[in-house]
Structures are given as C-alpha cells and as structure tokens.
Design a protein around this nucleic acid. Structure first.
Lengths: 225, 225, 225, 225
DNA sequence: AATGAATGAGCGTTCATTCAT
DNA sequence: CATGAATGAACGCTCATTCAT
C-alpha cells in the first residue's frame, strides 16, 4: 500500500502519458508499420521492459492513442457548442471551425487519425468505423432537429451526415501534405459555406465570418493558458 | 521465338491478370500488411517463383493495382459525361452516380483504394495524394466554369472541390462495412442533392432522379455485355 | 546421322565455346557467386534452356572453365621451354615470363583462376588443390634435376616449389587491382631474379633481360597471328 | 542500469566472442557461402534473434572475423621482433617462423583468411587487398633498410615484398589440405632459406635453425600459460 | 535444338514479445 | 519497477534447375 500512494501513482501516470505522447510523435513521423517498439522506447529513453509494463503491446497503445484523439475531437466539438443560445448557424460554424483548429494544432494526431489508423487490420477498422459512425449519428440527429424548425432541404439525413463528416477529409489531407505553417483554419469559412448550402440553410456571409473569428479567438486563448 | 508467339503472349497476359485479380481479392480480404506473398500465391495456386516472374514484388504489384483502379474510376467518369448536351446538372449527377456504381461493382477494389492503400509508406502516400489532387483539380476547373454561366455560389473552388471529392468517403466506407447486397447507388440521389445544393445550383428533384436512373441503366447494360 | 554431320557438330562446338567465353567474362566482372545463370544467358543472348543443353549446370561450366585456364597456362609454359638448348637459367626465365604474359593477356581468366575459383566449396577446392599440386610437382622435379649438375642450394625441393609457384600470387593480385594498361610483364625481371637467387643459381643480369625480351617477342608475335 | 553492470557486460562480451569463435569454426568447415546463419546459431545453440542482437549480419560478422585474424598475425609478427638486438637475419627468421606457427595454431582462421575470404564481393576484396598491401608495404620498408648496410641484391623492393609475402600461400594451402597433426613449422627453415637466398643475404644454416627453435619455444611457452 | 515459364527450397533479416535478474 | 538479452515465427525474395512445347 506504501507503493500505491497517490504520489507514486501520479508518477506512473505521467510516465505512461509521456510514452503515449512520444509514441504519437514517432507514429506520425514514421508511420504505424514502419515504427518498431524499439523506435518508441529509444525516443522516450526507456527500456522495452518498461514499455510492456505500461502497455500491453504496440497495437494496444495505438488503439488507446487513436481513441484518445477521437475523444479530444469530440470534446472540443462539444465545448464550443453554445447551447444556451440556440443559434444553429452559429453552432454549425463553430463546430466546423473547432475541428479544423484541432487538426491544425495537433498535426501529428491528425496524421495518425486520418492516415496511420487506416487499414491496420479488421479489428481496428471496426474501432475506426465505430468512431466515425458515432460522429455521423450525432450529426444525423442535429440534421433531423434542423428540419423541424428550419427551411432546410435534406432528403436523407444519414447521407447528409456522412457527406458532411467526410467533407473535411481531403482538405486536411491536402494540408498535411503541405507546409506546416499554412493555416488550415483559413479554409473554415469556405468549408462552412459549402456544407451550410448543402443543407440549404439560409445564412449571412458576415455572420459566418464573425462566428469563425469568435471561436478561433476563444480556442487560441484557451490554448495559451 | 517459339514462345513469343501471340498465343503464348496472350496466355502470359491472362495469367498476369489472374494474379492481379487474385491479389486484389486477398488484399481486400486481409489487408495489405496482413497479406503475405505466400497468401496470394496459394490463393492463385501458383508458385512463389511464378509470382516473381510476373511481378517485381509485393509492393510493385499493389502499386499497379492501385493505379489501375484509379484509372478505371477516372475513365468511367469520363465515359458517362454527355459532352454534346452541355447540361451541367445532368453531367454532375451522372458522374456522382457513375462513381458510386463503380465502387459498388468493384467492391474489393473500392476497399483497396479507400482503405488498404492508405498509410502504406511515404512513397505510396505520394502516389495516392497525386491521384487525389488530380481528381480535385479537374473538379476545380468544372466549378470555375460553372460560375461563368450559372447562378452558383462557390467562395473558394479549391475547398469546394476537396469537399466534393471527399464527400463520397464515409458513404462508401459505411457501405463497405455493411451487407454486400446493399445498393450503394441508392444513395446517389441524396449525395447528388447534397453537393448540388452545396454549390447552390438550381435543380429539379425529378430531373436528378431521371438522370440517375438513366446512367445506371446505361452502366448496367454495358456491364452485361 | 544427318544432324550429327561434321558441320552441325562444328556449329555446336562453336556455340558451346561462345557460351564458355561469355561466362568467363561475366564471372570475371561480377564474381562467381554474384553471377546468375540468367546473367550469362542474357550476355550471350541465348535461352536458359540452351545453357542447360550445353552444360550440366553453373558449377560444371565453371569447373570446365577453370580447368581450361589451368591447362592454357601449363601449355604456354611447355611451349616456351627451349628443350634442345638445355639452358636452365634461360628456361626458368622463359617460364616465369610466359606466365606473367598469360595473366596479362587473359586478365579475366587470371581473375577467375586466382580469385573467383577460391573457396567455392570443398569439391572444387580439391580440383584447385590438385592443379596447384601438379604444377608444384613439375617444378619440384625441375629443382631436383637442377641440383644434379648445378651449384644451387635447395634444402627442400617441395618447399622451394611451393614458394616459387606462389610467388606470383600477390604480384598478379596487385596488378589485377590496378590499371588495365599497366604491364605485368615489366615485373618479370624482378620476379625471376628473386626466385633464381632463392635457388642460389648463378646468373648474369644481362642474360635474364635478354631472355625476357626474347620470349615476350615470341609470345606477342604468336598472338598477333 | 541493472544490466549495464560490469559483470553483465563481461557476460555479453564472452557470448559475443563465443559466437565469433563458433562462426569461425563453421565458416572454416563449410565455407562462407555454404554457411547459413542458421548453421552458426545451431552450432552455437543460440537463437537467430541473439545472433542479430550481437552482430549486424552475416557479412559484418565475417568482416570482423577477418580483420581480427589479420590483426592477430600482424601483432604476432611485431611481438617476435627482437628490436634491441638489431640482427636482421634473426628477425627475418623469427617473423617467418612466427607466421607459420600462427597458421598452425589457428588452423580454421588460416583457412578463413586464405580461402574463405577470397572472392566474396568487391567490397570485401578491397578489405583483403588493403590488408595484403599493408603487409607488403611494411616488408618493402624492411628491404629498403636491408640494402643500406647489407650486401643484399634486390632489384625491385616492391616485387620482392610481394613475392616474399605470397611465398607462404601454397605452403599453407598444402598443409591445410593434409593431416591436422602435420607440423607446418617444420617448413620454417626451408622457407626462410628460400627467401633469405632470394634477397642474397648471407647467413649460416646453423644460426637459422637456432633462431627457429628459439622463437618456437617462446611462442609455445606463451601459448601454454 | 531451342525456348522461357514454372518451380520451391532456401536465404538473410526483422521485430513484437517475454522473463530472469 | 526497470532492464535488455533472448526468442523464433514470419517475412519478402532469389535462383539453379526442369520440362512441356
């Protein structure tokens, strides 16, 4: 019981997290299949034994990493939702912008989520598919609620949700290929307009621009704390 | 020159193609990294030596497979364009539908293109990125020409092209996960409407449905020949 | 019987020899182990089947090649011996010079004999050892005959023969490493003096130089025919 | 740093050395190309993984082995030089004898150095050529210094050095072919006389025999410690 | 005689994982 | 808790040889 003191536990947690972070960097740089456990432990300056003390194996660590990333994206989306003020256009814009901002501020994680996590093996594809489906289901609900009080035109909410969620894909891929300093959030307005129009939601250009600016300011502030 | 007769060459070509097809199936079923050359040759009932007689190696075969798939999609898109009749709405609908139809009729190839080909290694990512970029560039040109004579609203053609091209992604992914008999082309109308609206192109529901039906009939007829 | 006409047989022999020559070049350039049968047949513009029609296999061909080379060296040595004129110093000089000349004019064969044929496998080492032993035995006989009528000092003819025969080795190796135009025969005088002195045979510098010149003239003349 | 203790390091070094020794035996018995890594690890009763933990690969291990052998020969030559007593004849005899003694007491290494290391590949040939050249250069210097104060006759020191160094070759090769109990050092007197006479250095038979006996006694004593 | 497609044993090497210390 | 030596299944690939045509 001595050894499981809170202090010790904290140290363990910190080391675990450190390994996760290091692994994320290595995976992003070298790719999942080209990364050996040895690469990770060397980068983290720990022993293979330690690695296997904290994690069941390479695949398990990656799975945890992936789920953490997905959760971070979902959490950020949730956080930026202005629920009190039931402004759909505003919230829609905020979510899109927040997502782009996340990709931008966690470049390696974006790479892992969109590239390295794809096609690993059937079991992992299941995990990935589930997380995608969950996002789409959430959006589908949104769209259905949209319809009730708004003059939108969505023949099939499921298709719309799938199309909407994947509309980020090539945009982020393209950005990952390019210069690191390029601002992905600069595409926020364009992407928002594309998707708002796709739903036939009426909006004012100026509003969108304002919403984008607002949420970016908030996010950057939080980050700087 | 005994063996270089046309007949022999034809048999060689056929065998090569057979190996390619077999490999496609195995890759689709087991994934690129989980597929050993041994798996392919066993499935094709040939020897390892034969495999290496026809292909430089596993990676080269996969690359050829990938490029063939990409080309098949591009060719189909081109083929369904009704150039004489300069009806934008119609052509747009036809291209979307043809793409879905292709994914549907070449399920394994779809899986390879969208899942197995992702995150293989930097060189291959370059190939993949290039093929994506080319599709997007073509679409970007379309969008720019749209603007000239049509009441569309596209603040940024590049973003629109990227969003449009990727809008297929989750839809096909979702379909790949499900039952094989499910018809992906049933989503054609929904996806077309989503993207047409995204560009603010005015259209009639009935026209879209008709265009979808037309092109599907054409494609299925060609296939049955 | 038609087909085994002399003409046909000649054509077969010529082709066989052509393959042997081609193989010698390839072996010399790429080394025995780094040369595949495919390399030889490509260089010779024949098919693998033909190769195996004329030769039992790669190893057999190489063995034949090796024995041919050894025989060529022995024959040349025999040919330059001036038997009528029983001048030991002269004949000794002529043999040494002729050997160097052979290495020089058949550079690839030298490489094969001294480098590529070494350490292939136990059976081949036996062949090689036998050919070396034969040369040494011949020389041993010479030395024994020397002793009878000459004021030489050879405590052990076997050792002397082995030392004499191997005295060429590093010299040729060094030459093989260097420029192709360098003349190996320029070392003839030096090597002859070394070995004559080693046997304590009295000689005149000028005679040696003359003998070297003579035999080189003869050899070069024969070659030019 | 548990495992980095001196004791552990010593065990690692010992195992590494054990693998090297085992590999030397296997290479000597089966030849380089006919030896698979599997053969070595089986003989050493270790796993393939262990082999690759201690060595980069088969080729690297062999190169290390070769360089170690070459160094051992050079070191022994150096060690037997009686520098204080500037007796050329004595030192010359001691070096020749020490070399033969080395070949004799390290039979497998001799085989590796003279047979298995030959014709492996161009890079390795460079290594081998370099080590030979170094030995020859050393001997060339000796010969040049000989000339200053001695009545020797060496028209070309380079040729003499090459001839001298290679004079061991067939002698050792012949011994390697024969019975293991045969004494190679019995040829020391004969070989020394051959080379001393080749340089026209005046000497007394009895001195040579004494020098040979002396150095062999020394070497055998050291070995028995 | 000539061809070259077909074979498959065998190779060197990697790396996720274990476990004695 | 930490270490890193040890394991061995599995991989992609080569190439001497065969044989139906």
């Amino acid at each position: 019981m001595y050894k499981t003191s809170k202090e010790t536990q904290d140290r363990k947690d910190a080391k675990r997290q450190f390994i996760l972070d290091t692994a994320a960097n290595v995976f992003a740089k070298r790719g999942y299949h080209n990364t050996a456990v040895k690469d990770i432990v060397e980068e983290a300056s720990i022993s293979v034994g330690s690695f296997y003390f904290y994690f069941k194996g390479k695949e398990e660590l990656f799975a945890e990493l992936y789920l953490t990333i997905v959760k971070a994206f979902q959490d950020t989306s949730q956080k930026v939702l202005d629920i009190k003020n039931n402004n759909l256009i505003k919230n829609f814009t905020r979510v899109i912008t927040a997502n782009l901002w996340m990709y931008q501020s966690k470049r390696e994680l974006a790479r892992i989520m969109l590239i390295e996590a794809v096609g690993l093996n059937p079991e992992f594809e299941k995990k990935r598919s589930d997380s995608i489906k969950e996002s789409c289901r959430t959006m589908e609900e949104w769209f259905k609620r949209f319809k009730v009080h708004n003059p939108v035109n969505i023949p099939d909410e499921r298709i719309a949700a799938l199309a909407f969620e994947s509309s980020f894909y090539y945009l982020v891929l393209d950005w990952l290929e390019g210069d690191e300093v390029a601002k992905l959030t600069d595409s926020s307005y364009g992407l928002t307009v594309y998707n708002l129009q796709a739903l036939k939601m009426p909006f004012e250009d100026e509003d969108i621009k304002m919403y984008v600016k607002e949420v970016l300011d908030e996010l950057n502030q939080v980050q700087n704390l």
